[in-house]
Nucleic acid binder design. Structure first.
Length: 283
DNA sequence: ACCCACCCCTGGGCGC
DNA sequence: TGCGCCCAGGGGTGGG
């Protein structure tokens, strides 16, 4: 599951469901799920068994569980990953990749991932901020996010606004859905050159990003289908509030013009052709 | 710096 | 029914 609201929903579920518990056993059902743990699956399990989970942290779309060893169990959900907290008797999911049982004999943690773009790894000494995640910027809901640094960084770039929003080293947590939604609110086409975005407009855009992420989080995130669920298997509701994403041909909620879809970076961008006019030389 | 093409996968929907 | 496309909230890499 991809973007910040959905990942934050999962983080909260992990905080409630596994923090304070001690891992008893780890089962690797699919090697790809631990491919980022370069020392291999056996090393992965050895570093986890008997370790207590101290909490659940997030940076952008990356998650990590600090352990009492000082290491961190890091994870990224990719396009279709789920971290579920399930009773041991619950039947195995079709795409169950990893299972973690706990010494208290309670609910298991399961990593389920249809497309296997996601994965977990143990990062040595990474309890505070795993080294593999250091390159990720803070997200706009992070109290330490620096608004003015974002505004300056955006305007310093030579790129398109949407590319910049999707660049996790500039600002994290934004993916295809929330980039399109924030751009619609800001009446900006994603191809607008970043240099041409005024300081006030950049601040306004950031405000819309923050709003849309926050509103979605309150709704439990966006769930078009059963792939995007909380640790309890619950779907979010924000798809009802989307203004552009996935709504090609439907009327813009502001002006009524049919929402357009354009190819972008091998995927799709949705925007209002009237509220978000294409720049002369889109990027 | 930046951009692109391409890689990693599975499955659902669609046209034929 | 089945096949071949296209599409999907991710990121990383290597070459230009």
């Amino acid at each position: 599951m991809p973007e910040l609201p959905e990942v934050e929903v999962v983080r909260r579920g992990l905080e409630r469901g596994v923090a304070g518990r001690t891992i008893e056993r780890v089962e690797v059902h699919h090697a790809r799920a631990v491919r980022r743990h370069t020392a291999g699956a056996d090393d992965f399990t050895a570093l986890l068994q008997g370790r207590a989970v101290l909490g659940a942290q997030r940076r952008g779309k990356y998650l990590w569980l600090p352990l009492d060893s000082g290491d961190a169990l890091t994870g990224h959900l990719g396009m279709s990953g789920q971290l579920l907290v399930q009773p041991p008797e619950a039947p195995d999911q079709t795409h169950l990749r990893l299972r973690f049982t706990f010494t208290d004999g309670g609910r298991e943690l399961r990593f389920v991932d249809q497309r296997t773009f996601g994965g977990l790894a143990v990062v040595a000494g990474g309890a505070d901020l795993p080294g593999t995640i250091e390159h990720i910027a803070r997200d706009p809901l992070d109290p330490l996010f620096d608004d003015e640094a974002f505004v300056a960084g955006l305007r310093r770039r030579h790129s398109g606004v949407k590319r910049a929003l999707l660049d996790q080293t500039l600002v994290s947590g934004i993916g295809n859905i929330y980039a399109d939604e924030a751009l619609w609110r800001a009446r900006l086409h994603g191809g607008r050159p970043t240099e041409a975005v005024t300081r006030p407009k950049a601040r306004e855009l950031l405000g819309h990003v923050r709003d849309v992420l926050g509103e979605s989080l309150q709704q439990g995130g966006t769930s078009f289908d059963a792939l995007y669920v909380s640790t309890e298997g619950v779907s979010g509701l924000f798809q009802r509030s989307l203004n552009t994403y996935g709504r090609e041909g439907e009327p813009c909620g502001r002006c009524g013009a049919p929402i357009r879809r354009e190819a972008f970076m091998g995927r799709s961008s949705y925007s209002c052709p009237r509220c978000q006019p294409r720049p002369r030389a889109p990027r």
